[in-house]
Design a protein around this nucleic acid. Structure first.
Lengths: 154, 154
DNA sequence: CTGATAAATATTGTGCACAATCAAAACGTG
DNA sequence: CACGTTTTGATTGTGCACAATATTTATCAG
């Protein structure tokens, strides 16, 4: 078979490229985040909570889940670990006791200062034009909206 | 602060777009692969083994690890599950007893037929021009080679 | 007010990822 | 040959992801 037409060839799979790059990027983050004692998913959670905090808002678990596209099975234990480290609290809402709000502690808010340097630290080791990354990001966001569409029925 | 310059904003992070798209893509694969009783990483392993098999070669664990960029801590239990399902065997090499070779069983080889349809099934639900995916794949591959470079020393 | 339904989170179980460590086998050098 | 190093894979432990299910609370129809 013409190898250029072998749709099962690993090197022809966008999905594998995505999978490999995703892991390579998080591997780049890992040592930087280790200094903050954060894992990569925990860092993403902090990004959301910092954003909401600066807007004067408090996030709850379902807000976080929608934003990061993660469910409670992933978030509940992750948030408990972050609570144990003193970065956040987990408080049942008084107005709706189903809801768990996630206010930042002082330590959690303070950690943002130390995180400020991370995006630049990550980039400066890479020798990639920032415009390429912006273009990639927009392409990925566009793709994500396609992927959100309905799955094929069959 | 100008929100366009907030480097900690989640929506400005390429890494999050990558993370979200990667999970969305594997979620699209999941129901298709479920029919073959494969997980997504197991499917990637089969892609490599099918390729090698068609080239008349037998893969070992370290070959697989280099190709997929996964270590034995990930591969060993995954391969044991695939062996238990009768898709592959795990045989100590006679010439070098450190090496575990991974020949396909007849069932493993036969599964390729049923997998042939998967790439097309995935695409046909998506309404994305194939050229965009090719371009994205090449951009990701280029990025991967940058990421393989040396990490910043500090 | 009551029963049905929906929403928000928690729990359990499986399967990756990856760091760290280990053990066995092979290899290289003196 | 002996000793130190490298290669290969297995093991252990932690932390995501996600399916399936359960639990609690809220909401809504009648």
């Amino acid at each position: 078979m013409d190898p250029d037409k072998d749709f099962l060839a690993l090197d022809h799979q966008v999905c594998f490229a995505l999978y490999a790059v995703n892991r390579a990027v998080t591997a780049r983050y890992r040592p930087l985040l280790a200094e903050l004692e954060l894992t990569y998913p925990q860092y993403l959670v902090m990004l959301v909570l910092w954003e909401q905090d600066q807007a004067g808002q408090v996030c709850c678990v379902s807000d976080l889940g929608k934003r990061l596209r993660l469910d409670s099975g992933t978030l509940t234990p992750l948030l408990k670990r972050m609570e144990a480290r003193g970065l956040i609290e987990r408080q049942r809402s008084l107005s709706d006791e189903r809801v768990v709000t996630l206010p930042l502690t002082a330590a959690g808010r303070a950690l943002r200062e130390r995180a400020q340097a991370i995006p630049e630290q990550l980039l400066c080791g890479l020798d990639i034009a920032p415009e390429r990354l912006t273009a990639l990001r927009e392409e990925l966001r566009s793709l994500l909206s396609c992927l959100d569409g309905p799955a094929p029925s069959g």
